[in-house]
Write a protein that binds this DNA or RNA. Structure first.
Length: 103
DNA sequence: GACGCTAAAACCG
DNA sequence: CGGTTTTAGCGTC
């Protein structure tokens, strides 16, 4: 159920170049709001699976966000591999060189 | 109405 | 100094 709020988040995500990552707070501040918590919820529902790289969104400390770090499902692991292929290495659920890739 | 999700600050040893 | 934990608020279903 994409809402206006979610639509904004997805649009900003598509603006993130491959090989780079962003944070929930960054997206919130960028869209003019500070609901980074709601963004986490919105990305968790990500209806635009491949078009919206929710895997490029991580927490503010470079650690993987709620989309794939704790459960480590098989689908999630695949996304991590995809990130590495783009140039974003994820080790132990953390982004390697995160601040260097932060947009 | 309830739930989930993140960020920030403060505290301790 | 570092690491960890708790609190608070936002939006969605």
């Amino acid at each position: 159920m994409p809402t206006d709020f979610e639509n904004m988040v997805y649009d900003l995500l598509r603006n993130v170049p491959e090989g780079k990552v962003t944070t929930y707070k960054r997206l919130a501040e960028r869209m003019g709001t500070k609901a980074y918590r709601a963004i986490g919820s919105a990305l968790a529902r990500n209806p635009y699976a491949p078009e919206v790289p929710c895997h490029r969104v991580v927490s503010s400390n470079g650690k993987i966000g709620g989309f794939m770090g704790k459960k480590s499902g098989p689908t999630i692991l695949k996304k991590q591999n995809l990130l590495k292929d783009e140039g974003v290495e994820v080790k132990d659920g953390k982004i390697v060189g995160f601040k260097s890739k932060l947009v």
